[in-house]
Amino acid sequence: MDWMAWTWPTAAFFGTIALMLVIFTGLAIRFPETPRVGVLRIETTRGDRLFITLLGSAFINLAWLGLVGDNQPLALGVCLIYAICVFRWV
C-alpha cells in the first residue's frame, strides 16, 4: 500500500464518505422512500441528495480556498448549512 501514499487525513476523508454510503444504504433498505420533486424540479432520493451535497461541498471548499484563502474549517460549516438546505428543499 506504500505506493498509494496514504495519509491519516485522506484516510479519514474516504472513511467518512464510505461510512455515509453505508449509512444511506442502510437507511434505504430500512426505510424505503419514494423520490420527491424539490426546488430543482427534478426527482431526488436521499442518495441523490447525498451526491448533490458531496459534489457541492467540494466546490464550496475550492471556492473558499480560492476566494477566502484561510480558515478552511469554516468552509465545512458552510457545507453543513448547504447540506441541510439540500436535504430540506432539493
Partner: peptide, 21 residues
C-alpha cells in the same frame, strides 16, 4: 476507485520520487 484515491493522496503531499512523500 483506487487510482482516484491515490490521486487524492498525492494532491496533499510533495514528492521527489523514490516513493517518499
Amino acid at each position: 476507485v483506487i487510482p482516484l484515491m491515490t490521486v487524492v493522496n498525492y494532491s496533499v503531499q510533495d514528492t521527489f520520487g523514490n516513493n517518499q512523500f
